[in-house]
Design a protein around this nucleic acid. Structure first.
Ligand SMILES: [Mn+2]
Ligand SMILES: [Mn+2]
Ligand SMILES: [Zn+2]
Ligand SMILES: [Zn+2]
Lengths: 135, 135
DNA sequence: AGGCAGTTTAGAATAATTTTAAATTATTTC
DNA sequence: GAAATAATTTAAAATTATTCTAAACTGCCT
């Protein structure tokens, strides 16, 4: 009954001081069984609904925010003022298709960034994000 | 009374089939007199208010959208679900400071992009945006 | 089992942006 | 130059994404 990946997810949640509730286990199952996913609160809600799991939208937002805070997800902002959450937390870049709102991962090594300019005054670079917008 | 740059802006608006209304001329003055500006609807509204020019927020949004549509502005989306409008419409990149929400331009030539991956299937690359997030 | 803290929830609240439809203003026509 | 026309502006309502509130629930520790 309890699948192997479900136990993995329970452990994953515990490692991040998140109680393994039914809701968080279900969302971890949807998010972390595939190697790399890009979801919004609404696309994830549709998946939850499709599985017949009852869950409030507030819980989906709470959980996405908690998963991001502990580093299980990575936030991306693109056109149309909707937040995307990325299950790939390695450093990487994206193709973005504005017609379909699809995101495709590009491994960091696939883009050679030469000659980055200096960060201003006393600032340091936290991250470099490349988005290749498709036509 | 009518300044030289105001006449320039009237011509600029006419060139893009936009009637030179008082509101659009005032906004063009705020936006296009400095070489490069990054504004949101609200920062621009504050500037309009500071000059004592009466203007509804809807007009500010309408105008920013119209200016974008005709290519006088360029839209940028970052954290916090607010749209930024950039008066620099040349191809260029940005430093972004998440503490202050400041954007700093980086000329396209200052970043060397080597080995861009192929666009998927029949797609082509419309634009490459690099955001260097500061810590 | 009992108790407590953490979590979920429905619904209200907030924030950014768009829409509506009426009033105003810029251009065209006379 | 005034009237007619069409585009623009506006206040207010609507929409959309997200967060907050406070009450109900549930996982965990004893
Ligand atoms: Mn100018
Ligand atoms: Mn929003
Ligand atoms: Zn990704
Ligand atoms: Zn810029």
């Amino acid at each position: 009954m309890t699948t192997v990946s479900e136990n993995d997810h329970i452990n994953l949640l515990r490692q991040h001081d998140l109680r393994p509730t039914r809701q968080r286990i279900a969302l971890a199952g949807l998010l972390f069984n595939a190697p790399c996913r890009h979801v919004t609160a609404e696309t994830l809600r549709a998946e939850v609904a499709a599985q017949g799991i009852p869950m409030s939208l507030a819980t989906i937002y709470n959980t996405l925010n908690q998963f991001s805070r502990v580093g299980l997800l990575h936030e991306i902002n693109l056109d149309d003022n909707v937040r995307y959450f990325d299950t790939n937390t390695d450093h990487h870049h994206h193709f973005f298709d504005p017609k379909t709102n699809d995101l495709i991962d590009i491994p960091a090594g696939a883009i050679g960034l030469r000659s980055l300019p200096e960060a201003p005054d006393g600032r340091s670079v936290e991250r470099v994000d490349v988005v290749i917008r498709l036509a």
